[in-house]
């Protein structure tokens, strides 16, 4: 079972990975975006880590809801409402339970991913974060490791795609040949999930 401490650890690990990878995310965002993805997410996830340490919500749902709210208010770019909605809707789906099963988490995360899709009007294949999130959540019922692999493969597979949403879509065919920064940062969430699960087993 996964408790609030697991989810706090997950998001703190994600913040550390985003911090480590911020420069690469911004580089990916330079040719097809506005070169702020890394710095925006870095600021947002740092605020999440600080808030979770200070408030330490007692349930998985409350951890994710608070983190989502924090991202919406601190990121300042489109990834704020998108990641914020992902976490907040997932948190709401988990309700007030003190612990949740991996299957409950997988189901809740699917609700969150669906909300991201509805918010941005995007689908897999549009060269967005959904190209990592959807295969990851499909594999999450199997294992965290399978979800991580699916997310990373999904992110890599965005390179030949033409962007159909967001600023990159203004570039048309010139968006082809670049890995999507949002799909890349989404995969970091699943890297962090595996790290957190492995830390718990030690």
């Amino acid at each position: 079972m996964l408790d609030a401490a697991f989810f706090r650890h997950w998001l703190t690990s994600a913040a550390a990975l985003v911090d480590r990878e911020a420069e690469r995310l911004t580089q990916l965002d330079s040719p097809i975006g506005d070169a702020d993805h890394g710095s925006n997410l870095q600021r947002g996830f740092a605020a999440v880590a600080t808030t979770l340490e200070k408030d330490a919500p007692a349930t998985p749902g409350a951890v994710l809801t608070l983190a989502g709210r924090q991202l919406i208010s601190t990121v300042g770019g489109a990834s704020g409402p998108l990641y914020g909605t992902l976490l907040r809707r997932t948190g709401k789906a988990l309700g007030d339970a003190a612990e949740v099963s991996e299957q409950q988490f997988a189901d809740a995360l699917r609700t969150g991913v669906d909300a991201v899709s509805a918010l941005g009007g995007a689908a897999p294949g549009d060269k967005t974060m959904l190209d990592a999130l959807v295969p990851a959540v499909d594999a999450l019922g199997e294992s965290f490791g399978a979800a991580r692999d699916a997310a990373n493969e999904g992110a890599l597979a965005t390179t030949p795609l033409q962007a159909r949403k967001g600023r990159a879509s203004y570039l048309g065919e010139r968006s082809i040949g670049h890995q999507d920064p949002g799909a890349t940062s989404s995969a970091l969430l699943f890297d962090a999930l595996v790290q957190t699960a492995e830390a718990g087993r030690e």
Partner: peptide, 15 residues
């Protein structure tokens, strides 16, 4: 455009 639209939508839908 962009994050302006998404932020308002997220605030209305979620918060």
């Amino acid at each position: 455009l962009g994050s302006a639209v998404l932020t308002v939508k997220a605030l209305i839908a979620e918060g």
